[in-house]
């Protein structure tokens, strides 16, 4: 009978949940923050625009780091 590697399976499940949901949410925050920044600027609320802009940039940095991590995982396969 096959020995299914349940440890590896468990890792795939939790990493997929965290990374898949996390990266999608991060990029959604980038879009949300960018649009809120534009809206705040149009209304002349420079402070809010700056805050939303910083949030969008921070989310973009973490999103980019996640993509780079994905490429590194590929490079480390063999």
């Amino acid at each position: 009978m096959a020995v299914v590697d349940f440890h590896a399976l468990g890792q795939v499940v939790w990493v997929s949940l965290v990374a898949g949901i996390g990266v999608t949410v991060l990029f959604s925050v980038v879009i949300w923050g960018t649009d809120k920044t534009a809206a705040a600027r149009r209304e002349g609320q420079d402070g809010q625009a700056l805050a939303y802009g910083v949030l969008a940039v921070a989310a973009m940095v973490v999103f980019s780091a996640a993509v780079i991590t994905g490429v590194v995982v590929m490079l480390n396969k063999g």
Partner: peptide, 13 residues
């Protein structure tokens, strides 16, 4: 995005 993360995590382990 989810497809890529599932494939990469599976491939990694």
């Amino acid at each position: 995005t989810v497809g890529a993360t599932v494939i990469l995590s599976a491939s990694h382990v």
